[in-house]
Simulated assay, not measured.
Amino acid sequence: MSFKTKMIPLAGAIAFAFAGAAAAQDLVVKIGHVGPISGAIAHLGKDNENGAKMAIEELNAKGVMIGGKKAKFELLAEDDGADPKQGTTVAQKLVDAKVNGVIGHLNSGTTIPASKIYNDAGIVQISPSATNPKYTQQGFKGAFRVVANDGQLGGTLGRFAVQINKAKKVAVIDDKTAYGEGVAAEFIKGAKGKGAEVVVQEHTTDKSTDFSAILTTIKAKNPDVIFFGGMDAVAGPMLRQMKALGITAKFMGGDGICTADLVKLADNGIGEGQVVCAEAGGVLDAQKKINDDWKAAFKKKFGVEVQIYAPYVYDSVMVMVEAMKAAKSAEPAKYLPELKKIKYKGVTGDISFDDKGDIKDGTLTLYTYKGGKRELLQVVK
Rank of each mutant, 00 (worst) to 15 (best):
M231L: 13
P223E: 09
A249L: 12
I218K: 02
G35W: 14
A266D: 14
F298T: 07
K189L: 07
K381N: 06
D361Y: 01
G63T: 09
G372N: 10
L339K: 05
I308W: 01
S108K: 13
D210S: 04
F353I: 05
V99H: 09
Y369L: 03
F298L: 08
A130E: 13
T88P: 00
I351P: 00
K373P: 04
G371M: 12
G12N: 13
K69M: 14
E57C: 09
E279D: 04
V170I: 15
A235T: 05
I66M: 07
G142F: 06
A17Y: 13
D210Y: 02
I31K: 12
F187E: 08
K192P: 01
Q138E: 13
G236P: 08
T156K: 05
A19K: 10
K264H: 08
G20D: 09
D350L: 01
L376M: 02
T365P: 01
Q86H: 01
T205N: 08
A13V: 04
E375Q: 11
K295F: 04
E331M: 00
V199C: 10
A40I: 10
D350C: 02
Q201S: 15
A71M: 11
T365Y: 04
E197F: 01
L75C: 05
K370W: 07
G195Y: 05
I8H: 08
A24V: 05
G190D: 06
V102P: 03
C258V: 02
S115L: 04
V379Y: 06
K219Y: 07
H33P: 00
K264G: 01
N149Q: 11
I351W: 01
T259E: 11
T177E: 08
